[in-house]
Design a protein around this nucleic acid. Structure first.
Length: 506
RNA sequence: GCGCCCGUAGCUCAGUGGACAGAGCGGCGGACUUCUAAUCCGCGGGCCGGAGGUUCGAAUCCUCCCGGGCGCACCA
């Protein structure tokens, strides 16, 4: 038996029709509470006029307890009008589920590793890294809600050329020498130079602080130097060849666009790509069913490399998943933003957070689908006003908290109705009932952007309800209090999925 | 040249096979003695980049073209 009221209604209709019925919410009130186009879709294969099929579905639906009436409309839609009792029962179920409402029981339940951000410790976390983290972390939260076990990992290069340059830059400052042209410049290098010891751990600590501030917590940190230790033992298991003095992986034969160099000509040192091999093996050997890589779209050229490595080593490539996202551009009143005086056009996440706040930052960075480039007007995003959807949603939560604070302790929780439901109440219940399908869809398509979009619609429905109806000391106080509690829970859930706080007061 | 992403209202974007294409911002006008007015209500704006095709039906699927972004390292 499906867990939520809508899919149960759909299932009941489906069994009476002998086909899967999908319900949608029509845009117009005259088309009922829910509608289905199943008659149109079935008309072809069953060689029947769509309206005739629709009439049969409508007849069958009329026999269901929840359905007040069903109408055939247009070319063959069936519109369902539901009884108030269905709304009360649906709300009751949502309240009974409590904080667990929307959570799933994944089949099969997977152990998933989400590797994200993974910026090398040569400088502070940037806004571009923040999109990686905001997106990856929201996907991780969605997978957890769907019932999977998720671990977040940060991978970084602690050896190699870039790190040498970084250390050399800090050393140069300490000796009072000029920083090499190909080194790292900026105030943070001076700050690191002021303290003795290896600057890399200090840099990492600072980066972790920024990420924690951004509400991203990593379960583990993987070092390339450690990972690389297993490279010699794995190289013989790969499909490789020698060319121009270098060792190449024959990855093009395994679904990659091209072959990749593993050991450089000359000193035969491993490339960054080479370290991917032991790292991938490490991930899968640690018992993860699925390894998710979150990468900027500028890395899409290596998208198929990881799966190719898996194939080469005999692992199921379906266990490897690469998620790509488009870049972030900051503007200030339409102008290309140059927020950081220290490093030209790159923007430090900490400065960005100082300016617009963590809530707005997380919201804006997951508000768009990963395939969409993001333009953020920093001045606009910094405004704590109605222009900013994140506060609109938070305000709905805080408003509810206010009502619940004022509610009597002995308020009844009996949802039975004493008078017909108002349109705003019905709309709100239907919106709440959408949550399970919204989060399931978001998790399945790795598209957390549908969550804030849904949260806005929910806040919209709530604000309208609030404006039209009094909750406390109203004729239907119990039902309306229930509606408030359920709405608050669902808003809090949505905000949590995005990494935004749900305030009790604003 | 090849590959990936994008092109929808003045701006930022939803909508990826169905009923007249939606929202926010910006503009104008209304609503607080009442649980938070960071709210609500009303008024505009679009040959869905272009051309073909598939379908009963296309913003949505296919092909080509145009425009923008990003890749095509023994850098990460």
């Amino acid at each position: 038996m499906p867990a939520d009221p809508i899919s149960r209604l759909a299932a009941a209709l489906g069994s009476s029709v002998g086909a899967e019925v999908t319900l949608e919410r029509p845009g117009e009130a005259e088309y009922g509470d829910y509608a289905t186009n199943v008659a149109l879709q079935l008309a072809g294969s069953r060689r029947r006029p769509p309206r005739e099929l629709a009439a049969e579905i409508a007849d069958a639906a009329a026999g269901l307890e929840a359905v007040e009436r069903a109408e055939v409309a247009g070319p063959g839609f069936v519109n369902f009008f539901l009884r108030d009792e269905w709304f009360a029962a649906a709300l009751g179920e949502i309240l009974a589920a409590g904080d667990g409402y929307g959570s799933g029981v994944a089949e099969p339940r997977e152990r998933v590793q989400v590797e994200m951000v993974s910026a090398n410790p040569t400088g502070p976390i940037l806004v571009s890294h923040a999109r990686n983290g905001a997106y990856g972390d929201s996907v991780a939260r969605l997978l957890e809600l769907a019932g999977h076990e998720v671990a977040r990992e940060y991978y970084y290069n602690d050896s190699g050329l870039q790190m040498e340059r970084f250390r050399a830059s800090v050393d140069a400052v300490r000796k009072g020498e000029p920083v090499p042209e190909d080194g790292y410049h900026g105030d943070y290098v001076r700050d690191l130079a002021a303290v003795d010891g290896d600057p890399v751990p200090a840099m990492l600590e600072s980066m972790e602080r920024t990420l924690e501030r951004f509400r991203i917590h990593f379960d583990s940190w993987a070092l390339q130097s450690v990972v690389e230790e297993r490279l010699p033992e794995l190289l013989p298991r790969l499909d490789t060849y020698e060319k121009d003095g270098a060792l190449w992986a024959r990855s093009s034969a395994y679904g990659d666009e091209e072959d990749r160099v593993l050991l450089r000509s000359g000193d035969r040192s491993p490339t960054y790509r080479a370290a991917d091999v032991p790292y991938l093996v490490d991930k899968l050997d640690r018992g993860f069913d699925r390894a998710v890589y979150v990468l900027g779209a500028d890395h899409h050229g290596t998208r198929n490399w990881y799966a190719a490595v898996a194939r080469m080593l005999g692992y199921d490539p379906a266990r490897i998943e690469v998620l790509l996202y488009q870049p972030v551009h900051l503007t200030r009143g339409g102008e290309q933003a140059k927020m950081s005086k220290r490093r030209g056009d790159v923007v430090f996440l900490d400065e960005f957070l100082d300016e617009i706040g963590v809530d707005a930052a997380r919201w804006y960075l997951v508000n768009r689908g990963p395939d969409q480039a993001i333009d953020i007007d920093v001045d606009l995003a910094a405004e704590r006003t109605q222009k900013n959807p994140v506060y609109y949603v938070q305000y709905a939560h805080a408003r509810i908290a206010g009502i619940l604070r004022n509610a009597p302790d002995n308020a009844s929780d009996n949802l039975s109705l004493s008078s017909p439901l108002a349109p705003e109440e019905r709309e709100l219940v239907k919106r709440l009932a959408e949550l399970p399908s919204v989060v399931a869809d978001a998790a399945a398509k790795r598209g957390p952007q549908v969550v804030p979009a849904y949260a806005i619609r929910l806040a919209d429905d709530f604000h309208r309800f609030y404006h039209e109806h009094r909750v406390l000391e109203s004729e239907q106080q119990a039902f309306r209090l229930g509606l408030c509690r359920a709405t608050q829970t669902v808003i809090a859930r949505c905000l949590d999925l995005v990494g935004v706080e749900a305030p009790e007061r604003m």
